[in-house]
């Protein structure tokens, strides 16, 4: 499994042809206490760069963009009742969606951890 990052602070971890997507700890920190996450419906197809979710804190709302093309195969229902998971465990229990990749080559254009850390430094 490899994890890649976007400039808009999404992370994507790939396992086979399925990727899990969430927002980074840095992004969660910038937003503050997350109070609501609006997730898409399962089955929706996304193109890279599409807005697919909205994450809200008390005083801010941010769109979340698809890091790659693909189809939504699962969403994290737990976030509806416990949006705090995005702050507590952004890279784990705070995941947003699982996407079935249509073009794995797109991952090559994303940052690895070192590059992302440099990006947010």
């Amino acid at each position: 499994m490899t994890t890649r990052y976007t400039e808009d602070h999404e992370w994507i971890t790939v396992d086979g042809d399925t990727a899990t997507v969430g927002i980074t700890a840095y992004a969660a920190g910038q937003l503050g206490d997350v109070v609501f996450v609006e997730l898409p419906e399962v089955g929706k197809t996304l193109s890279k760069g599409d807005e697919f979710a909205v994450v809200e804190s008390v005083k801010a709302a941010s769109e979340v963009y698809a890091p790659v093309d693909g189809e939504i195969v699962a969403i994290n229902d737990d976030l509806e009742g416990e949006p705090a998971k995005v702050n507590e465990d952004p890279a784990g229990a705070g995941w947003f969606v699982k996407i079935k990749l249509s073009d794995a080559a797109q991952l090559d254009g994303l940052m690895d951890e070192a590059a992302y850390n440099a990006h947010t430094a």
């Binding site: 109070v35 609501f36 809200e56 804190s57 008390v58 005083k59 801010a60 709302a61």
Partner: peptide, 12 residues
């Protein structure tokens, strides 16, 4: 729930 409102959400 102010994120629905114009002063935060602006054009959305």
């Amino acid at each position: 729930l102010s994120t629905r409102e114009q002063h935060i959400r602006r054009d959305k």
